[in-house]
Design a protein around this nucleic acid. Structure first.
Lengths: 129, 129
DNA sequence: TGTTGACTTAGAGTCAACTCCAAGTTGTAT
DNA sequence: ATACAACTTGGAGTTGACTCTAAGTCAACA
Protein backbone atom coordinates (compact mmCIF):
# COMPACT_ATOMS: atom_id res chain seq x y z
CA UNK A 1 0.00 0.00 0.00
CA UNK A 2 1.41 3.40 -0.95
CA UNK A 3 1.60 6.31 1.44
CA UNK A 4 -1.22 7.97 -0.52
CA UNK A 5 -3.52 5.01 -0.03
CA UNK A 6 -2.79 4.96 3.68
CA UNK A 7 -3.51 8.70 3.85
CA UNK A 8 -6.86 8.21 2.18
CA UNK A 9 -7.73 5.19 4.28
CA UNK A 10 -7.12 6.99 7.57
CA UNK A 11 -7.73 10.60 6.54
CA UNK A 12 -4.29 11.71 7.62
CA UNK A 13 -1.61 13.61 5.69
CA UNK A 14 1.49 12.02 4.19
CA UNK A 15 3.52 14.53 6.18
CA UNK A 16 2.06 13.22 9.40
CA UNK A 17 2.73 9.60 8.41
CA UNK A 18 6.33 10.42 7.57
CA UNK A 19 6.64 12.41 10.79
CA UNK A 20 5.34 9.48 12.85
CA UNK A 21 7.90 7.21 11.29
CA UNK A 22 10.73 9.72 11.59
CA UNK A 23 10.26 10.33 15.31
CA UNK A 24 9.41 6.70 16.09
CA UNK A 25 5.67 6.77 16.79
CA UNK A 26 5.63 3.79 14.42
CA UNK A 27 8.56 1.52 13.49
CA UNK A 28 10.32 1.89 10.12
CA UNK A 29 7.91 1.16 7.28
CA UNK A 30 8.68 -1.46 4.61
CA UNK A 31 10.22 0.07 1.45
CA UNK A 32 10.41 -0.89 -2.24
CA UNK A 33 13.82 -1.46 -3.84
CA UNK A 34 13.74 2.20 -4.84
CA UNK A 35 13.24 3.34 -1.24
CA UNK A 36 9.55 4.18 -1.51
CA UNK A 37 7.24 3.31 1.38
CA UNK A 38 5.12 0.22 0.75
CA UNK A 39 2.94 -0.31 3.82
CA UNK A 40 2.37 -3.96 4.76
CA UNK A 41 -0.36 -5.27 7.08
CA UNK A 42 1.99 -4.90 10.02
CA UNK A 43 2.91 -1.32 9.15
CA UNK A 44 -0.74 -0.46 8.74
CA UNK A 45 -1.61 -1.98 12.10
CA UNK A 46 0.99 0.28 13.73
CA UNK A 47 -0.42 3.30 11.91
CA UNK A 48 -3.93 2.42 12.98
CA UNK A 49 -2.90 2.05 16.59
CA UNK A 50 -0.95 5.29 16.52
CA UNK A 51 -3.92 7.21 15.13
CA UNK A 52 -6.28 5.60 17.61
CA UNK A 53 -4.14 6.44 20.62
CA UNK A 54 -3.31 9.92 19.41
CA UNK A 55 -7.04 10.55 18.94
CA UNK A 56 -7.45 9.69 22.59
CA UNK A 57 -4.86 12.31 23.55
CA UNK A 58 -1.99 9.93 24.22
CA UNK A 59 1.20 11.98 23.79
CA UNK A 60 3.53 11.26 20.88
CA UNK A 61 6.30 10.88 23.44
CA UNK A 62 4.50 7.95 25.04
CA UNK A 63 3.92 6.19 21.73
CA UNK A 64 7.61 6.60 20.91
CA UNK A 65 8.51 5.05 24.25
CA UNK A 66 6.18 2.12 23.61
CA UNK A 67 7.68 1.43 20.17
CA UNK A 68 11.17 1.69 21.63
CA UNK A 69 10.33 -0.84 24.34
CA UNK A 70 8.63 -3.10 21.84
CA UNK A 71 11.75 -3.15 19.70
CA UNK A 72 13.88 -4.07 22.69
CA UNK A 73 12.03 -7.37 22.91
CA UNK A 74 10.38 -9.53 25.57
CA UNK A 75 12.46 -8.17 28.45
CA UNK A 76 10.34 -5.01 28.29
CA UNK A 77 6.96 -6.67 28.69
CA UNK A 78 6.48 -5.35 32.22
CA UNK A 79 7.48 -1.85 31.20
CA UNK A 80 5.12 -1.94 28.24
CA UNK A 81 2.23 -3.20 30.36
CA UNK A 82 2.87 -0.39 32.85
CA UNK A 83 3.02 2.19 30.11
CA UNK A 84 -0.31 1.03 28.70
CA UNK A 85 -1.90 1.06 32.15
CA UNK A 86 -0.65 4.58 32.71
CA UNK A 87 -2.06 5.61 29.33
CA UNK A 88 -5.33 3.93 30.23
CA UNK A 89 -5.64 5.89 33.46
CA UNK A 90 -4.96 9.17 31.68
CA UNK A 91 -7.67 8.42 29.14
CA UNK A 92 -10.17 7.42 31.82
CA UNK A 93 -9.45 10.68 33.66
CA UNK A 94 -9.78 12.75 30.50
CA UNK A 95 -13.04 11.02 29.69
CA UNK A 96 -14.43 11.96 33.08
CA UNK A 97 -13.71 15.59 32.30
CA UNK A 98 -15.49 15.23 28.98
CA UNK A 99 -18.52 13.89 30.80
CA UNK A 100 -18.53 16.77 33.24
CA UNK A 101 -18.29 19.26 30.37
CA UNK A 102 -21.10 17.50 28.54
CA UNK A 103 -23.34 17.77 31.60
CA UNK A 104 -22.59 21.45 31.89
CA UNK A 105 -23.16 21.99 28.18
CA UNK A 106 -26.46 20.12 28.22
CA UNK A 107 -27.63 22.24 31.12
CA UNK A 108 -26.70 25.45 29.33
CA UNK A 109 -28.14 24.32 26.02
CA UNK A 110 -31.37 23.45 27.80
CA UNK A 111 -31.50 26.95 29.26
CA UNK A 112 -30.95 28.49 25.87
CA UNK A 113 -33.71 26.40 24.35
CA UNK A 114 -36.13 27.63 26.97
CA UNK A 115 -34.96 31.16 26.29
CA UNK A 116 -35.53 30.69 22.59
CA UNK A 117 -39.11 29.49 23.19
CA UNK A 118 -40.10 32.02 25.84
CA UNK A 119 -37.88 34.92 24.83
CA UNK A 120 -36.58 35.09 28.39
CA UNK A 121 -33.21 33.89 29.66
CA UNK A 122 -33.50 32.62 33.22
CA UNK A 123 -30.53 31.56 35.28
CA UNK A 124 -30.42 30.21 38.76
CA UNK A 125 -28.22 31.50 41.54
CA UNK A 126 -25.33 29.15 40.78
CA UNK A 127 -24.87 30.54 37.31
CA UNK A 128 -22.70 33.40 36.21
CA UNK A 129 -24.92 34.17 33.28
CA UNK B 1 -10.42 35.96 46.22
CA UNK B 2 -6.84 36.62 45.11
CA UNK B 3 -5.33 35.15 41.98
CA UNK B 4 -3.26 32.86 44.17
CA UNK B 5 -6.31 31.45 45.88
CA UNK B 6 -7.99 30.83 42.55
CA UNK B 7 -4.83 29.10 41.32
CA UNK B 8 -4.81 26.81 44.31
CA UNK B 9 -8.52 26.13 44.13
CA UNK B 10 -8.39 25.03 40.49
CA UNK B 11 -4.79 23.85 40.24
CA UNK B 12 -3.97 26.26 37.45
CA UNK B 13 -1.15 28.80 37.15
CA UNK B 14 -1.59 32.55 37.63
CA UNK B 15 -0.09 32.99 34.17
CA UNK B 16 -2.86 30.92 32.65
CA UNK B 17 -5.54 32.85 34.54
CA UNK B 18 -4.08 36.16 33.34
CA UNK B 19 -3.77 34.77 29.83
CA UNK B 20 -7.43 33.68 29.82
CA UNK B 21 -8.48 37.14 30.84
CA UNK B 22 -6.15 38.89 28.42
CA UNK B 23 -7.35 36.98 25.35
CA UNK B 24 -10.99 36.95 26.45
CA UNK B 25 -11.59 33.34 27.48
CA UNK B 26 -13.15 34.95 30.56
CA UNK B 27 -14.45 38.51 30.91
CA UNK B 28 -12.44 41.18 32.76
CA UNK B 29 -11.98 40.22 36.40
CA UNK B 30 -13.01 42.54 39.26
CA UNK B 31 -10.07 44.60 40.61
CA UNK B 32 -9.21 46.27 43.91
CA UNK B 33 -8.69 50.05 44.00
CA UNK B 34 -4.99 49.34 43.42
CA UNK B 35 -5.68 47.33 40.29
CA UNK B 36 -5.11 43.88 41.77
CA UNK B 37 -7.46 41.07 40.72
CA UNK B 38 -10.10 40.24 43.33
CA UNK B 39 -12.18 37.38 41.96
CA UNK B 40 -15.89 37.54 42.80
CA UNK B 41 -18.36 34.65 42.57
CA UNK B 42 -19.17 35.60 39.01
CA UNK B 43 -15.51 35.76 37.98
CA UNK B 44 -14.91 32.39 39.58
CA UNK B 45 -17.88 30.87 37.78
CA UNK B 46 -16.38 32.01 34.47
CA UNK B 47 -13.00 30.56 35.44
CA UNK B 48 -14.61 27.28 36.43
CA UNK B 49 -16.47 27.03 33.14
CA UNK B 50 -13.40 27.92 31.13
CA UNK B 51 -11.34 25.21 32.82
CA UNK B 52 -14.14 22.69 32.46
CA UNK B 53 -14.56 23.31 28.74
CA UNK B 54 -10.84 23.52 28.05
CA UNK B 55 -10.42 20.18 29.84
CA UNK B 56 -12.88 18.76 27.34
CA UNK B 57 -10.76 20.02 24.47
CA UNK B 58 -12.91 23.00 23.54
CA UNK B 59 -10.61 25.45 21.75
CA UNK B 60 -9.69 28.74 23.39
CA UNK B 61 -10.93 30.43 20.21
CA UNK B 62 -14.43 29.06 20.79
CA UNK B 63 -14.54 30.19 24.40
CA UNK B 64 -13.47 33.67 23.33
CA UNK B 65 -16.28 33.73 20.77
CA UNK B 66 -18.78 32.67 23.43
CA UNK B 67 -17.70 35.39 25.84
CA UNK B 68 -17.82 37.94 23.02
CA UNK B 69 -21.38 36.92 22.12
CA UNK B 70 -22.39 36.89 25.77
CA UNK B 71 -21.18 40.45 26.16
CA UNK B 72 -23.18 41.54 23.14
CA UNK B 73 -26.36 40.70 25.00
CA UNK B 74 -29.63 38.89 24.35
CA UNK B 75 -29.56 39.34 20.59
CA UNK B 76 -26.86 36.65 20.44
CA UNK B 77 -28.82 33.93 22.21
CA UNK B 78 -29.30 31.90 19.02
CA UNK B 79 -25.65 32.21 18.11
CA UNK B 80 -24.58 31.17 21.60
CA UNK B 81 -26.93 28.18 21.59
CA UNK B 82 -25.52 27.11 18.21
CA UNK B 83 -21.97 27.51 19.44
CA UNK B 84 -22.66 25.33 22.48
CA UNK B 85 -24.34 22.69 20.34
CA UNK B 86 -21.36 22.63 18.03
CA UNK B 87 -19.04 22.30 21.02
CA UNK B 88 -21.21 19.49 22.33
CA UNK B 89 -20.98 17.53 19.10
CA UNK B 90 -17.20 17.88 19.02
CA UNK B 91 -16.96 16.57 22.57
CA UNK B 92 -19.29 13.65 21.86
CA UNK B 93 -17.16 12.73 18.84
CA UNK B 94 -13.93 13.00 20.80
CA UNK B 95 -15.41 10.85 23.54
CA UNK B 96 -16.19 8.11 21.06
CA UNK B 97 -12.53 8.03 20.10
CA UNK B 98 -11.57 7.76 23.75
CA UNK B 99 -13.85 4.75 24.10
CA UNK B 100 -12.33 3.06 21.07
CA UNK B 101 -8.83 3.65 22.41
CA UNK B 102 -9.83 2.28 25.80
CA UNK B 103 -11.14 -0.90 24.22
CA UNK B 104 -7.92 -1.35 22.32
CA UNK B 105 -5.86 -0.64 25.43
CA UNK B 106 -7.85 -3.07 27.55
CA UNK B 107 -7.32 -5.76 24.96
CA UNK B 108 -3.58 -5.15 24.86
CA UNK B 109 -3.27 -4.87 28.63
CA UNK B 110 -5.13 -8.18 28.92
CA UNK B 111 -2.64 -9.79 26.57
CA UNK B 112 0.28 -8.44 28.56
CA UNK B 113 -1.18 -9.75 31.78
CA UNK B 114 -1.46 -13.23 30.28
CA UNK B 115 2.11 -12.88 29.07
CA UNK B 116 3.27 -11.87 32.54
CA UNK B 117 1.60 -14.93 34.07
CA UNK B 118 2.61 -17.50 31.45
CA UNK B 119 5.85 -15.94 30.26
CA UNK B 120 4.58 -16.16 26.68
CA UNK B 121 3.24 -13.30 24.57
CA UNK B 122 0.54 -14.55 22.25
CA UNK B 123 -1.04 -12.39 19.59
CA UNK B 124 -3.77 -13.24 17.19
CA UNK B 125 -3.62 -12.66 13.45
CA UNK B 126 -5.09 -9.17 13.61
CA UNK B 127 -2.29 -7.85 15.75
CA UNK B 128 0.93 -6.27 14.68
CA UNK B 129 2.67 -7.46 17.79
C1' DT C 1 13.72 8.58 -23.76
C1' DG C 2 11.72 12.31 -21.94
C1' DT C 3 8.46 14.36 -19.02
C1' DT C 4 5.22 14.41 -15.52
C1' DG C 5 3.64 13.47 -11.06
C1' DA C 6 4.32 11.13 -6.82
C1' DC C 7 7.74 9.97 -4.07
C1' DT C 8 12.17 10.91 -0.98
C1' DT C 9 14.98 13.63 2.78
C1' DA C 10 16.57 17.24 6.07
C1' DG C 11 15.39 20.94 8.03
C1' DA C 12 12.69 25.16 8.68
C1' DG C 13 8.18 27.10 9.74
C1' DT C 14 3.49 27.24 11.90
C1' DC C 15 -0.07 27.03 15.29
C1' DA C 16 -2.48 26.61 19.72
C1' DA C 17 -1.93 27.19 24.22
C1' DC C 18 0.44 28.39 27.37
C1' DT C 19 4.78 30.02 30.15
C1' DC C 20 8.34 33.03 31.24
C1' DC C 21 10.66 37.54 31.76
C1' DA C 22 11.69 42.37 32.94
C1' DA C 23 10.44 46.30 34.94
C1' DG C 24 7.51 48.41 37.72
C1' DT C 25 3.50 48.72 41.63
C1' DT C 26 0.84 47.24 45.78
C1' DG C 27 0.19 45.83 50.27
C1' DT C 28 1.52 43.75 54.58
C1' DA C 29 4.78 42.93 58.43
C1' DT C 30 8.31 44.65 61.02
C1' DA D 1 9.40 54.08 57.03
C1' DT D 2 11.33 50.21 54.97
C1' DA D 3 11.67 45.90 53.34
C1' DC D 4 9.92 42.27 50.78
C1' DA D 5 6.66 39.15 48.84
C1' DA D 6 3.03 39.16 45.70
C1' DC D 7 0.97 41.59 42.45
C1' DT D 8 0.84 44.20 37.74
C1' DT D 9 1.78 44.76 32.42
C1' DG D 10 3.48 44.00 27.63
C1' DG D 11 5.87 41.23 25.15
C1' DA D 12 9.02 37.45 24.17
C1' DG D 13 9.88 32.46 24.50
C1' DT D 14 8.56 27.48 24.79
C1' DT D 15 6.25 23.13 23.87
C1' DG D 16 3.87 19.57 21.35
C1' DA D 17 2.40 18.21 17.18
C1' DC D 18 2.41 18.78 13.13
C1' DT D 19 3.06 21.15 8.25
C1' DC D 20 5.65 23.07 4.69
C1' DT D 21 9.73 23.83 1.58
C1' DA D 22 13.57 22.83 -1.33
C1' DA D 23 16.13 19.94 -3.78
C1' DG D 24 16.41 15.84 -5.48
C1' DT D 25 14.81 10.61 -6.94
C1' DC D 26 11.57 7.13 -8.77
C1' DA D 27 8.18 5.22 -11.88
C1' DA D 28 4.58 5.02 -15.31
C1' DC D 29 3.32 6.52 -19.73
C1' DA D 30 3.70 8.90 -24.69
Amino acid sequence: MTIKEVCEKYDITADTLRYYERVGVIPAVTRTAGGIRDYQETDIAWVENAICFRDAGMPVEMLIEYVKLFQEGDSTIDARANLLKEAREAIVEARKKYDIALEKLDYKIGRYEIAQKTGVLTWDDQEEE
